[in-house]
Amino acid sequence: MKLKRFGAPVVLAVVATIALSSCAANEDAAPAASETTSSLTGTLNAAGASSQQAAQEAWVAGFQTANPDVTVNYDPSGSGAGREAFISGGVDFAGSDSALNDEEIAGTFAACAPDTKAVDLPVYISPIAVVFNVEGVDELSLDAATIAHIFKGDITKWNDPAIAALNDGVTLPDANITAVHRSDDSGTTKNFADYLNQVAPDVWDQKPADPFPYQTGEGAQGTSGVIDAVTNGTNTIGYADASRAGDLGVVKIKVGDEFVAPSAEGAAAVVDDSPAVEGREANDLAVKLERTTTDPSHYPLVLVSYAIVCPEYADAAQAELVKAYVGYIASADGQTVAADAAGSSPLSTELQGKVADVVASIK
């Protein structure tokens, strides 16, 4: 991998709505974070990326089994909501499919010690699936430009010549397309938009951001909302973390001269070939994804989801809980748990080591 850097009113709403309780987590069987007796105690609150939900459920179950006096709560409220809650001090760390932006970094972080800036630590790598529910269609292949035209509202019929040209032999219905996007601020949206902007910039002409940029299609709240809308609608298409695709059809996207299905291996290959975001502190491990590959062993519609943490916390007790939990989820054992639960791609050994170095320095 090319990532080189390493080194040492909303608050109450988020805390009140945290959905993942220790009781629920412990009902699910999952490998324990450790077999040793733990002296940790307290409550750790986090919120953010709904893409991480399946992984977080498994991580919480494993961690709480090994640390029975710790309660971990994770609210999959979306990346934007998670970052907002963390910045305001409503949670101890955020899960986010978007790294902190320059404006956020320039601000203050209520949970952190004075004059301390939060950092982005990769903990979850997953392909984004373009999912569909189209009458009579089991397989669908699309290139980036066609996907962009569909979600912009330029292509409105399933039997449009541009779709038909990519799907020889597939009977496409003369039916209206319902394109479902995230209605909330979403890191999944930003990654989806970044892929389209990099690969089909003449069509997707808006700068990638957490809000969906066009006044088209149908909006739905969170990953679950998108999946529900595509599943329960007619002739629908949407995008979501691949772990949530379920029984929906999944588009093969064009990479080079081939059409490629989402895979953990293809997602990992893109991350390994991508550089670090420039201009960040040495302990910030944000990745600038390079999506223009033509290598069909790669799947460029991928997200890297982060744990956003303080290098130094205002509350030393919370620092110890964050250090233990984030250290676990980014470890080889934690990454295996996520892969089993969510089909994600484990961090490379190199990246695991860099995250571990930063986690070890949390105080």
Results as ranks from 00 to 15, higher is better:
residue 242 A to S: 15
residue 243 S to H: 01
residue 110 A to C: 01
residue 286 A to H: 06
residue 130 V to M: 02
residue 68 P to C: 11
residue 138 D to I: 03
residue 272 D to A: 15
residue 272 D to S: 15
residue 132 F to T: 03
residue 176 N to K: 15
residue 115 D to K: 14
residue 154 D to W: 08
residue 9 P to W: 05
residue 177 I to H: 03
residue 287 V to H: 00
residue 262 P to C: 05
residue 32 A to G: 07
residue 116 T to N: 08
residue 197 N to R: 01
residue 142 L to R: 04
residue 336 T to E: 04
residue 216 T to K: 07
residue 328 Y to T: 05
residue 321 L to D: 14
residue 105 I to L: 13
residue 9 P to I: 08
residue 287 V to T: 03
residue 245 A to T: 08
residue 207 K to I: 11
residue 157 K to G: 02
residue 161 P to G: 09
residue 124 Y to Q: 00
residue 118 A to F: 02
residue 51 S to E: 07
residue 332 A to T: 10
residue 7 G to Q: 12
residue 204 W to Y: 14
residue 346 P to F: 01
residue 73 N to Y: 13
residue 287 V to Q: 02
residue 337 V to A: 02
residue 129 A to C: 11
residue 217 G to L: 03
residue 117 K to Y: 07
residue 158 W to D: 10
residue 98 S to P: 13
residue 362 I to K: 05
residue 303 L to T: 15
residue 283 N to Q: 11
residue 337 V to S: 00
residue 232 N to Q: 12
residue 170 V to F: 02
residue 175 A to Y: 02
residue 349 T to L: 04
residue 175 A to S: 10
residue 247 D to E: 15
residue 286 A to F: 08
residue 230 V to H: 02
residue 28 D to A: 15
residue 327 G to T: 09
residue 268 A to T: 01
residue 322 V to S: 07
residue 167 N to E: 12
residue 119 V to H: 01
residue 75 D to K: 00
residue 110 A to Q: 13
residue 246 G to D: 15
residue 34 S to L: 02
residue 190 K to T: 11
residue 291 R to K: 09
residue 203 V to E: 09
residue 274 S to A: 05
residue 182 R to N: 07
residue 163 I to Y: 01
residue 203 V to Y: 01
residue 195 Y to P: 12
residue 23 C to G: 14
residue 106 A to L: 09
residue 13 A to D: 13
residue 1 M to Q: 05
residue 102 D to V: 09
residue 208 P to H: 10
residue 98 S to K: 13
residue 204 W to G: 01
residue 252 K to E: 14
residue 110 A to G: 06
residue 152 K to C: 01
